[in-house]
Nucleic acid binder design. Sequence first.
DNA 1: TTGTGTTTTATTGCCTCC
DNA 2: GGAGGCAATAAAACACAA
Length: 324
Amino acid sequence: MAGQRWLYGGGSNMNSVFLQNQRVPCSSSLPLDSLLIPGSTSSFSGPRSMFSFKDVNGGNRSRRSCFCPFDPDDNGDEDLDEFLHHPEKKRRLTVDQVQFLEKSFEVENKLEPERKIQLAKEIGLQPRQVAVWFQNRKARWKTKHLEKEYEALQANFNSLKADYYCLLKDKEKLKAEVLHLTDRLLLKEKVQENLESSDTTKLSEAPPKESIADLISEDDVSKVSLVACKQEDYSAKSDVLDSDSPHYIDGGHYPVFELGDSSHIFAPDQSDQSQEEEDNWNKRLLPPPAYAFPMIEVAYSDLSANSCYFGFEVEHQASSFWSY
DNA sequence: TTGTGTTTTATTGCCTCC
DNA sequence: GGAGGCAATAAAACACAA
C-alpha cells in the first residue's frame, strides 16, 4: 500500500507529502513555482505534480532525494505546514507534457542526467517525474515490442504449419500411387501364373511367352520409377516431419490405409488357400526393391478430405488393365 | 450513479556497474 | 557503497457500460 502511505502518510510516514498540482498557468505568481523549478522557463501550463520528502528526510533511498529540489530546511515552517496539511492526490501530466516527453523518447529513449534536468525544466516537472515517465514508457515499449515479436513468430509458425500439411498430403498421395501400381504389378504376375498352369499342354504350341516387362506398359514402368524417386526425395523431410506429425500431436491412432471399395476387386482372393500356399504367394510376389515400401498408413486427422484423392481414378485404370 | 476494467503515475526492492 | 535500471506492484485517474 505504498500509495496510501504517500497520500495519507500516517504514523511513521508522516514525512511524505504531496504538493498540489496547480491547474493554473505558470505565469501565476505561485510560490510553488519558485520552490519546484527554480528559474524555470517552462512554457507548459499544466499541473505541477506531487513529490515526496520521504527520501530527503532520511528515507532509506537517499539517492533519490537528489530529484527533489525542495529543501525543507531552506523554507519556512509555514510553507512546509501548508504542504503537510494539503496532501494532494497525484495528477496526470497534461497532453502537452506527454507529447513533449513522447517526442523526446522517440529521439532517444535513454535519459542522461543532464537531459533529464533539461526536460524537467522545459515542461515544468520534477526530474524524478521525468525519470519515472521514461521508465514507465520503456516498460510500455517493451510490452508492445514483445507482443509484436509474438505475433511475428505466430505468423511464421502458421506458415510453416501450412507448408507441412501440404507436404504431408503430397506424401500420402504418392504413397497411394505406389501402392496402386504395386497392386497392378502383382495382379499381372498372378494372371501370368494362372495362364502358365492352365495352358501347360498347349505350351509347346503357344507363341513365346511375354515377360512381365512386356505385360507392363512403358508408361507404367516410368510411373513406378518416378514415384520411387519422388519418395526418396521426400524421405529426408519425412523423417523429420513424421516424428512431429499430427499423429503424435493429436495422439490419434494410425488407421491402416485402405484403397477404395472399387480396388478390392484387384486383391487376390486367398480365402480358399492354405497358409502354405499363402506363404508361397508372398514369396513369389515379393515386390522388387523399387516399390518395396512398408505398410502404408494414413493419418486421417488434420488432413482434408482431399488428402486421399490419388489424382487418378483407381477403378477405371485397374479395370482397363484387367480387361487387357 | 455506480461498478468494473484499463491506463497512468509512482514506489519499492533487487540487481549490476563503476 | 552509491547511482541508476528494471520488474513488480500499488493506487489514483480515467473510460464506459448498465
